[in-house]
Amino acid sequence: MTGAPGRSAPTIDPKDLTLKISGAIIGLVIVLWLGKNFLYDPGQFLTVAIQGLKNGALYALIALGYTMVYGIIQLINFAHGDLFMLGTMMSAFVITTVLGQSSPGPAGYAAFVVALVVSMAFCGGLNVGIERFAYRRLRRAPKLAPLITAVGVSFVLQFIGLRWNGSGQKQWQSVIPDGQINIGSVEIDVQTIIIFAVTIPLLLLLTWLVTRTKQGRAMRATAQDQDAARLMGINVDRTISFTFALGGALAGAAGLMYQQVVGTTAYNLGFQLGLIAFTSAVLGGIGNLTGAVLGGLLIGLIQGLNDGLVYGLGQQWSQSVVFTILILLMVFKPAGLLGKNVTEKV
């Protein structure tokens, strides 16, 4: 269908045309909606947009874990969001319970850094363990099996969260200062700045790891063709473990920042955030790292605008908006913004 390159003649496929037209209409409606809101109150619009981007940075970090794992073993790791959830709990545990920090200050910042390292290591290690125990045995099994297993792992992680955190939400004091910076009528939280101050170096580090190191090259080779990679002497098992470790570590970092910025932990947090992050990964083109970041920021932005704008549907529809985007994407552009199509071979 879409996979074949070129066409015999410049004929117009009516189905294609319908898709294009309806896609354009949807795009137009979105642009009109944004325009109307912007004109209503530009300052608020930008404030809300930056707020959205802040969440988007977290989605991007989680989305990277989905996209890397999908890229390398074509598995939708349903448990990834729950890994993030355990990251939030580990962070709260380290900062508040172990180190006893609950307010900004030098000790608080030090605790933040310690928690970042611990949470990343914890989630990375856990992710590697899950792969070793569950997914590795199913690598050659029919697709249904690892997918169902991932759903099972998600449930087990939620159970751990439930025992750890209780069935309700818990509130935590943050070590990040509360203040705001005003630029004209636009407000930017200090939290937002901290989130970007952590996220951007992490992304740079990841880029370096993937493009410049031997492990990174092995990762990309394995993602392209596992068997060929094995023939070239790449240790595929270790490379897959490495990928899971990276993805898990990013989820751990996102967990820390969520816990510090939003200030709550709950066992069922991972499910929703995980799905939002996965939608981001699909939006950007699954398997594509830049795509995941772009998708995360976009979804955060859209969600922020929907929740915060005067002409938005409001927060109670937040989830539905994201899933509607997901479903529309599947219809109009399953390969995502930066992905490419592939066809099956006989």
């Binding site: 074949a4 066409r7 015999s8 006989v346």
Partner: peptide, 28 residues
């Protein structure tokens, strides 16, 4: 050969050309 076969059976769309089965055009 296999690519050609896949064109005949409709798995690939040829960049150009026509396949007929009896009087029926079955390309793509």
């Amino acid at each position: 050969k296999t690519t050609f076969f896949n064109v005949l059976t409709g798995l690939y769309k040829p960049t150009s050309g026509v396949v007929r089965l009896g009087d029926e055009i079955i390309t793509a």
